[in-house]
Design a binder for these strands. Structure first.
Lengths: 353, 353
DNA sequence: GCTTCGCCTGTAATCGTTTACGAGAACGAT
DNA sequence: ATCGTTCTCGTAAACGATTACAGGCGAAGC
């Protein structure tokens, strides 16, 4: 009850009649005689001793903290990633620092530089745009960094990625196979890494399937949000007629469905719409959205594991892990004619692998 | 380019031909002669000196870190709160530690205890359940804690809350005024603070409006998630017939709409459904959901501000801030008969105040 | 019985800052 | 010229832990 002074090793040592060294050793599991160890533990618990994190960090040059920087905390796909990272990090007895960087790459560079303060032992970074400045920052970082997202080949940084272009390909093929001929792309900003990849994936798939692809069928939203999706979908529909629409993420897809409905077009009967990311939003939407699971949870988990492993073994070669995209078919792309327009059909249908 | 040793005050001091004290003073804005200050800054920037966070924390007994514990990172309402907290915290030059505690109150108690390590200067906590152990933990906490959510009166802890019972009242009244007679409640677990409050708010509103309220019209989901919402909505519909459904949060509401649609009941024509929390999900959904904005963003912001203020002025009286719930009317509760069933109606309609 | 080895344990240095204290310089007032 | 004030700056002591090093002691080996 008394507002006793915060216990320190010195106090514990005094009470247990041992040296501070012994206290530290016992509490860190170094060998000691059972009798002394017992005295130390007794004294420590009586005083409610808890080692001070700052002092410990200063001495051992390790904070037991990892930082995670995400571009948009609001996007559900980052939420999944975050949760996965948090789970792994916590299990390893590290703390997690969350830093939301804006869409400005300078934020990320600043963050990398700030790591020089030594407040974290490592960083997980998921940059939307990869600029030269960012690459410089990565090269100069004073702690290990794991990048979630695709990096240029040869950058010596641990990295976990997903081939989202291939993911787009899966969707395009699916739409073509279910009878859609005039397929559009509602992309995010094409100067982002995922935007560019999805664009390429789309064009390649259309080419391979021999489908006509005019620029009028491709539009880029200002960012990967619902509002931007609505705006861009509006533009797209003003300029083109289509029966299939591939969206670069689930939020954009929801925006598109929204606009389509407003304009009296039914999903999927008039237009099939697919999302991407495999967020819960796609699952609970009405109609449930076909999407591509890009393994956000896996990527988060793997990123955290890579980072923790690098802390243990700083000298292993940089690793690049790629997770596979997986098509999840739901009602929003049900073939015309077949009874696919009610919400409950196809809720949990998934393609193998 | 050279892997020079990490710069320290001592190195800077040496290079600038001054004492370490002067280096520290200059870099912390204490008065110094312009000439000496210039030399120090020059040397510091040449060496790329960045002060070490651990050492500084140890000395000043402050980490410039704040912790945020949320029960469910997946719930969009926590995402809004988190983002608001992050913004305020970052603006104050603090770092944010994210800790996801499970639904187990023991997790929160353990977290409170772990603060004794001194790794954070304060904590924002949003507990679902308030147990005696938690109250003890709060009382014994070694750093300031701000609780988001309602606490028993008299607990001397800064606290920001919302009267969600009143929020439920707003919805019930709205449903009654738009002609619904048989109104049900799809609640979350009633042993949680928000669950209990919403239950009371519902019963009180029904009573005041003179509406019949049978236990068959009230059901509690296992937690505040989509899946639990589906399950509980199914149970509710098996046992009762209703034309209005108040849900305790937006995820539950989405689950309910889902089940209703599966059973061939139209929203809002057969059953009006409302959510609660005012998340983006309610706005995005088809049909857009009437909901009650519980000010998650405001609560997050205010909690962070309270915490920062308490760090500056530790001795002010504990404060309790209450934010007002605000009804947001959308298509999911459009009156029968009037053309309210298409997605676009009522998208942004809001009641004043 | 004496050396040698190993085990425990304590003394003290160290991590990189901040800051109390004091010494000296500069300056104005008398 | 002397004294007191103010200002600047350096010396050294913290903060609270970990750990290199060494001392002491018992057991084992000869």
């Amino acid at each position: 009850m008394s507002p006793r002074p915060r216990a320190t090793v010195a106090l514990v040592a005094e009470r247990a009649n041992v040296s501070v060294a012994s206290v530290s050793r016992v509490l860190n599991g170094q060998p000691a005689s059972p009798e002394l160890a017992a005295r130390v533990r007794q004294a420590a618990s009586e005083l409610g001793y808890v080692p001070d994190a700052s002092a410990r960090s200063l001495k051992v040059r390790r904070t037991e903290q990892l930082a995670l920087a995400v571009a948009d905390v609001g996007n559900p796909v980052y939420v999944s990633m975050m949760r996965a990272v948090e789970t792994v990090v916590k299990a390893a007895n590290y703390r997690l620092l969350l830093s939301s960087v804006g869409s400005d790459p300078d934020d990320e560079v600043a963050l990398l530089a700030s790591l020089a303060h030594g407040y974290a032992d490592g960083l997980i970074l998921s940059p939307l745009r990869v600029t030269p400045a960012l690459l410089d920052g990565l090269a100069a970082a004073l702690v290990p960094v794991v990048v979630v997202g695709t990096l240029p080949r040869g950058v010596p940084v641990d990295n976990v990625r997903v081939n989202s272009g291939r993911g787009v390909g899966l969707v395009v093929r699916h739409l073509a196979e279910t009878g859609r001929r005039s397929i559009g792309l509602l992309n995010g900003p094409v100067d982002t890494v995922p935007g560019a990849a999805r664009q390429r994936g789309f064009e390649r798939a259309m080419r391979e399937l021999g489908l006509p692809s005019s620029p009028a069928l491709r539009v880029a939203a200002a960012d990967f949000t619902f509002a931007a999706g609505r705006e861009a979908a509006g533009r797209l529909l003003d300029g083109a007629k289509l029966d299939g629409l591939v969206c670069a993420n689930d939020l954009l897809a929801v925006g598109a469905v929204n606009v389509l409905t407003e304009r009296g077009l039914a999903v999927p009967d008039d237009v099939a719409v697919s999302g991407m990311d495999g967020t819960e939003l796609a699952e609970l939407y009405a109609p449930p959205l076909t999407t591509v699971d890009l393994g956000a949870t896996d990527r988060g988990r793997i990123a955290a594991e890579l980072l923790l492993d690098r802390l243990r073994r700083p000298d292993v070669e940089p690793r690049r892990v790629t997770v596979a995209p997986r098509l999840i078919v739901r009602a929003s792309t049900a073939p015309v004619g077949r009874s696919g327009s009610t919400a409950q059909r196809g809720r949990n249908a998934r393609t193998p692998r």
